[in-house]
Amino acid sequence: HEITLHINGRRVKLRFRDEKAAEILKEAAKKGLDEEELKKLAEELWR
């Protein structure tokens, strides 16, 4: 699955395995994680 989040006016595509991962990524984006941090988090969730 993929999700596209808008971060600092940019579109960031993240891959994720399940809905739980999608929710975690959305929450992290709301908390203000930047693009690099979100990509790292997405990679961690993928494993």
Results as ranks from 00 to 15, higher is better:
residue 42 A to P: 00
residue 10 R to G: 06
residue 13 K to V: 15
residue 34 D to K: 10
residue 37 E to W: 07
residue 34 D to E: 11
residue 43 E to S: 07
residue 39 K to R: 13
residue 6 H to K: 08
residue 6 H to L: 15
residue 22 A to N: 04
residue 6 H to M: 15
residue 9 G to Y: 00
residue 13 K to G: 03
residue 39 K to F: 13
residue 9 G to A: 03
residue 7 I to R: 02
residue 13 K to F: 05
residue 33 L to H: 08
residue 15 R to Q: 06
residue 29 A to D: 02
residue 15 R to L: 06
residue 23 E to D: 11
residue 30 K to E: 12
residue 5 L to F: 09
residue 16 F to P: 02
residue 41 L to E: 01
residue 27 E to K: 09
residue 11 R to C: 08
residue 7 I to T: 05
residue 42 A to N: 04
residue 42 A to L: 04
residue 24 I to P: 01
residue 43 E to Q: 08
residue 4 T to W: 09
residue 19 E to F: 12
residue 5 L to I: 13
residue 41 L to F: 06
residue 2 E to V: 14
residue 4 T to P: 01
residue 23 E to P: 03
residue 6 H to R: 10
residue 44 E to Q: 13
residue 5 L to A: 02
residue 42 A to Y: 04
residue 14 L to E: 00
residue 5 L to M: 07
residue 10 R to T: 08
residue 39 K to I: 14
residue 10 R to D: 03
residue 10 R to Y: 04
residue 35 E to V: 14
residue 42 A to I: 05
residue 16 F to I: 15
residue 31 K to L: 12
residue 40 K to D: 10
residue 33 L to F: 14
residue 47 R to N: 14
residue 31 K to R: 14
residue 25 L to M: 05
residue 6 H to F: 11
residue 44 E to I: 12
residue 44 E to G: 06
residue 13 K to E: 05
residue 30 K to Y: 10
residue 10 R to F: 06
residue 1 H to D: 09
residue 27 E to D: 12
residue 40 K to P: 01
residue 36 E to Q: 12
residue 21 A to E: 05
residue 28 A to P: 00
residue 14 L to W: 01
residue 2 E to S: 09
residue 14 L to A: 01
residue 32 G to R: 04
residue 34 D to T: 14
residue 3 I to P: 01
residue 10 R to C: 06
residue 7 I to Y: 03
residue 30 K to W: 07
residue 4 T to Y: 10
residue 35 E to F: 11
residue 41 L to I: 08
residue 8 N to T: 03
residue 29 A to R: 04
residue 13 K to T: 15
residue 44 E to W: 15
residue 3 I to T: 02
residue 16 F to M: 05
residue 38 L to S: 01
residue 25 L to Y: 04
residue 11 R to S: 15
residue 6 H to I: 15
residue 8 N to Y: 04
residue 18 D to N: 12
residue 32 G to E: 04
residue 47 R to E: 11
residue 22 A to Q: 08
residue 41 L to A: 02
residue 3 I to L: 15
residue 41 L to S: 01
residue 22 A to I: 10
residue 42 A to D: 01
residue 3 I to Q: 02
residue 9 G to W: 00
residue 40 K to A: 14
residue 38 L to H: 00
residue 16 F to D: 00
residue 30 K to F: 12
residue 35 E to T: 09
residue 34 D to L: 10
residue 40 K to T: 12
residue 17 R to I: 09
residue 31 K to T: 11
residue 18 D to C: 05
residue 26 K to M: 14
residue 37 E to N: 12
residue 45 L to S: 03
residue 45 L to T: 02
residue 36 E to K: 12
residue 24 I to S: 06
residue 47 R to F: 14
residue 46 W to E: 03
residue 15 R to G: 01
residue 23 E to R: 10
residue 33 L to N: 06
residue 17 R to K: 10
residue 37 E to C: 06
residue 26 K to L: 14
residue 38 L to T: 02
residue 47 R to L: 14
residue 7 I to A: 05
residue 25 L to V: 06
residue 17 R to V: 07
residue 13 K to D: 04
residue 35 E to S: 07
residue 31 K to A: 14
residue 36 E to T: 13
residue 46 W to S: 02
residue 45 L to N: 01
residue 42 A to K: 01
residue 6 H to W: 13
residue 17 R to M: 13
residue 12 V to R: 01
residue 30 K to L: 13
residue 16 F to V: 15
residue 4 T to R: 04
residue 15 R to P: 04
residue 26 K to F: 11
residue 10 R to E: 05
residue 37 E to G: 15
residue 12 V to P: 00
residue 27 E to P: 00
residue 33 L to D: 05
residue 27 E to R: 10
residue 19 E to N: 12
residue 44 E to Y: 15
residue 6 H to G: 05
residue 9 G to Q: 03
residue 2 E to A: 05
residue 32 G to W: 04
residue 9 G to F: 00
residue 21 A to P: 02
residue 28 A to S: 07
residue 30 K to M: 13
residue 25 L to F: 08
residue 41 L to G: 00
residue 17 R to Q: 06
residue 12 V to K: 01
residue 43 E to Y: 09
residue 41 L to N: 00
residue 16 F to L: 06
residue 46 W to F: 06
residue 44 E to A: 12
residue 12 V to G: 00
residue 1 H to C: 09
residue 37 E to D: 12
residue 16 F to R: 03
residue 35 E to Q: 06
residue 3 I to V: 07
residue 17 R to T: 05
residue 29 A to Q: 06
residue 24 I to Y: 08
residue 42 A to W: 04
residue 2 E to H: 13
residue 39 K to C: 06
residue 2 E to Y: 15
residue 36 E to V: 13
residue 6 H to S: 10
residue 19 E to R: 12
residue 42 A to Q: 03
residue 17 R to D: 02
residue 8 N to W: 02
residue 13 K to I: 15
residue 37 E to A: 15
residue 17 R to H: 07
residue 28 A to M: 09
residue 13 K to W: 03
residue 3 I to F: 07
residue 8 N to H: 06
residue 45 L to G: 01
residue 45 L to F: 04
residue 11 R to D: 14
residue 7 I to P: 03
residue 7 I to E: 01
residue 43 E to G: 07
residue 45 L to Q: 03
residue 19 E to G: 09
residue 23 E to L: 12
residue 31 K to E: 13
residue 40 K to E: 12
residue 30 K to S: 13
residue 27 E to I: 09
residue 37 E to V: 08
residue 26 K to I: 13
residue 23 E to Q: 12
residue 14 L to T: 01
residue 26 K to R: 13
residue 35 E to N: 05
residue 38 L to I: 13
residue 2 E to C: 13
residue 18 D to S: 12
residue 3 I to C: 04
residue 10 R to V: 12
residue 24 I to L: 12
residue 11 R to V: 15
residue 11 R to E: 10
residue 26 K to T: 11
residue 41 L to K: 03
residue 22 A to P: 05
residue 9 G to E: 03
residue 24 I to A: 10
residue 19 E to S: 11
residue 33 L to G: 08
residue 11 R to G: 10
residue 11 R to Q: 15
residue 35 E to D: 06
residue 36 E to M: 13
residue 44 E to R: 10
residue 29 A to I: 12
residue 26 K to N: 06
residue 26 K to P: 00
residue 32 G to L: 06
residue 19 E to Y: 11
residue 13 K to R: 14
residue 43 E to P: 00
residue 13 K to L: 08
residue 29 A to Y: 13
residue 4 T to I: 15
residue 20 K to A: 13
residue 43 E to K: 07
residue 24 I to M: 10
residue 1 H to Y: 15
residue 36 E to I: 11
residue 38 L to F: 03
residue 15 R to M: 07
residue 27 E to V: 08
residue 5 L to W: 01
residue 11 R to N: 14
residue 37 E to S: 15
residue 33 L to M: 15
residue 9 G to R: 02
residue 47 R to T: 13
residue 45 L to E: 01
residue 5 L to T: 01
residue 26 K to G: 05
residue 41 L to C: 04
residue 22 A to M: 13
residue 38 L to G: 00
residue 1 H to M: 13
residue 18 D to M: 03
residue 21 A to W: 03
residue 1 H to S: 10
residue 10 R to H: 10
residue 29 A to G: 06
residue 19 E to I: 09
residue 27 E to C: 10
residue 13 K to S: 09
residue 43 E to I: 08
residue 15 R to W: 08
residue 15 R to F: 08
residue 24 I to W: 05
residue 15 R to Y: 10
residue 10 R to Q: 09
residue 21 A to I: 03
residue 1 H to N: 14
residue 29 A to W: 15
residue 5 L to S: 01
residue 29 A to C: 09
residue 41 L to V: 04
residue 30 K to T: 12
residue 21 A to N: 07
residue 17 R to G: 03
residue 34 D to C: 09
residue 18 D to T: 14
residue 16 F to E: 00
residue 15 R to D: 01
residue 43 E to T: 07
residue 33 L to T: 07
residue 12 V to M: 05
residue 45 L to I: 05
residue 46 W to D: 03
residue 15 R to N: 04
residue 34 D to R: 10
residue 3 I to N: 01
residue 4 T to K: 03
residue 4 T to N: 06
residue 31 K to I: 09
residue 47 R to A: 14
residue 1 H to V: 09
residue 32 G to Q: 05
residue 19 E to K: 09
residue 8 N to I: 02
residue 35 E to P: 09
residue 12 V to C: 04
residue 39 K to N: 08
residue 6 H to Y: 14
residue 21 A to K: 02
residue 44 E to S: 09
residue 41 L to P: 00
residue 35 E to K: 05
residue 18 D to K: 02
residue 46 W to R: 02
residue 30 K to A: 14
residue 1 H to F: 15
residue 9 G to K: 03
residue 3 I to H: 02
residue 40 K to Q: 14
residue 11 R to H: 15
residue 35 E to Y: 11
residue 45 L to D: 01
residue 6 H to V: 15
residue 44 E to L: 14
residue 16 F to C: 09
residue 46 W to I: 03
residue 22 A to R: 15
residue 4 T to E: 14
residue 36 E to G: 11
residue 4 T to S: 07
residue 32 G to A: 05
residue 5 L to V: 10
residue 2 E to W: 15
residue 16 F to T: 13
residue 2 E to M: 11
residue 10 R to N: 07
residue 31 K to G: 11
residue 34 D to V: 09
residue 40 K to M: 13
residue 35 E to M: 09
residue 27 E to T: 09
residue 5 L to R: 01
residue 33 L to V: 11
residue 5 L to Q: 01
residue 28 A to I: 04
residue 41 L to R: 02
residue 17 R to W: 10
residue 4 T to V: 14
residue 13 K to C: 10
residue 14 L to C: 03
residue 3 I to A: 02
residue 26 K to D: 04
residue 20 K to R: 14
residue 36 E to R: 12
residue 44 E to D: 12
residue 34 D to P: 13
residue 23 E to A: 12
residue 13 K to H: 11
residue 17 R to F: 08
residue 1 H to K: 11
residue 31 K to N: 14
residue 5 L to Y: 02
residue 8 N to V: 03
residue 13 K to Y: 06
residue 19 E to D: 11
residue 32 G to V: 04
residue 22 A to L: 15
residue 37 E to F: 11
residue 43 E to V: 06
residue 13 K to N: 08
residue 24 I to R: 08
residue 20 K to M: 12
residue 24 I to Q: 09
residue 17 R to N: 07
residue 4 T to A: 05
residue 15 R to I: 06
residue 34 D to N: 14
residue 26 K to W: 11
residue 33 L to R: 06
residue 5 L to N: 00
residue 46 W to K: 01
residue 7 I to V: 14
residue 41 L to T: 02
residue 12 V to D: 00
residue 27 E to W: 07
residue 24 I to G: 03
residue 41 L to Q: 01
residue 30 K to N: 13
residue 31 K to C: 10
residue 23 E to K: 10
residue 43 E to N: 09
residue 1 H to I: 12
residue 1 H to E: 08
residue 40 K to Y: 10
residue 38 L to A: 02
residue 44 E to P: 00
residue 23 E to Y: 08
residue 2 E to Q: 07
residue 9 G to H: 03
residue 23 E to H: 13
residue 40 K to V: 09
residue 14 L to H: 01
residue 41 L to H: 01
residue 44 E to T: 11
residue 17 R to S: 05
residue 40 K to N: 11
residue 22 A to W: 09
residue 40 K to G: 08
residue 43 E to H: 07
residue 1 H to P: 05
residue 32 G to C: 05
residue 6 H to Q: 11
residue 15 R to E: 02
residue 30 K to P: 01
residue 27 E to Y: 07
residue 47 R to M: 13
residue 20 K to P: 08
residue 16 F to Y: 15
residue 38 L to N: 00
residue 24 I to D: 04
residue 3 I to D: 01
residue 14 L to R: 00
residue 12 V to I: 13
residue 35 E to L: 12
residue 22 A to D: 02
residue 17 R to C: 05
residue 21 A to V: 05
residue 8 N to D: 08
residue 6 H to N: 14
residue 39 K to M: 14
residue 14 L to V: 06
residue 8 N to Q: 08
residue 31 K to D: 10
residue 20 K to E: 09
